[in-house]
């Protein structure tokens, strides 16, 4: 009984997914057609630069942010200085801040450097998001410190220590964080809407939100194509999700 209920519930959860795919092939009078797809792919050329932008932003942000968050989480664990705990609590609070609070400071910061309406306006603030730092820090607390200690006898280069002693231990967490950050960037809507003016810089998520502006029934096929990259990544990395995310006592 419980089993059936759970399976039914799970089906409700996948339903919207299935429906998107099914309905994307629906033509007039409930016929099956590829018309929607050909409208999208051959009549709506703004789709391509916007798709490319989504790919570019998501990949660049996901990769570059590791250069910031791995050293940062490592620093939080190993450095000893006054105010470290308060600084970390600040990161937690910043992580919890809704976009509507952070987006205005982000905007002002970007405007002052003159980056509004460029690719960087999307990439730079996302790289410094505190989410990855907090998640990595939680994970690193459970890793084996003796490897790092042993490595310190051999080299004084902290970069080598991070590459050879830290990263191999946190691989699972890197996959989990990467999946999360990628999906988050892929879904971005507010930032491209507010930081960018030209359509040619915007993302697929903006395209879908305004799809009825461009042509007929292209919204659903666009949504299907939109889902594919994230679902593929999910397929390969989801086994790391649970082990890579350890949130318990934060501070």
């Amino acid at each position: 009984m419980k089993k059936v209920l759970l399976i039914l519930l799970a089906m409700v959860f996948v339903m919207p997914l299935v429906m998107t795919v099914v309905l994307s092939f629906r033509g007039e009078n409930n016929t099956i057609t590829l018309q929607n797809y050909s409208d999208l792919l051959f009549n709506c050329f703004i789709f391509y630069p916007m798709f490319w932008n989504s790919v570019l932003y998501a990949i660049v942000i996901t990769l570059i942010q590791f250069l910031v968050i791995i050293p940062c989480a490592f620093g939080f664990i190993n450095a000893r200085f006054k105010g470290k705990n308060i600084l970390f609590v600040f990161y937690i609070i910043l992580m919890m801040m809704p976009l509507q609070v952070t987006i205005l400071p982000n905007y002002i910061g970007l405007r002052d450097i003159g980056l509004i309406n460029t690719h960087w306006s999307i990439i730079l603030p996302a790289i410094f998001s505190p989410f990855g730092v907090v998640i990595m820090n939680q994970y690193m607390q459970g890793t084996d410190n003796s490897v790092i200690e042993a490595m310190r006898l051999e080299t004084s280069s902290i970069i080598r220590i991070i590459i050879h002693a830290v990263i191999p231990q946190i691989r699972i967490c890197i996959f989990a964080t990467g999946l999360f950050v990628f999906a988050d960037c892929w879904n971005m809507l507010e930032q491209p809407m507010l930081f960018l003016r030209e359509d040619s810089l915007k993302t697929l998520s903006v395209f879908i939100a305004n799809a009825d502006k461009y042509a007929g029934n292209i919204m659903l096929p666009a949504a299907v194509i939109f889902m594919i990259p994230v679902l593929l990544l999910y397929r390969f990395f989801n086994q790391h999700l649970e082990k890579g995310l350890t949130f318990g006592e934060l501070s």
Binding site: V68, P71, C72, G75, N78, F81, T102, P105, G109, D112
Partner: peptide
């Protein structure tokens, strides 16, 4: 020396947070 190096690891993230959040938040 080790402690200083560990602290330096925090710096990139701190600079980014300063530029895109803390300083502009003060202006807000």
């Amino acid at each position: 020396k080790w402690n200083v190096k560990c602290f330096l690891c925090l710096v990139p993230s701190l600079i980014g947070t300063l530029i895109f959040f803390i300083i502009p938040y003060v202006r807000v």
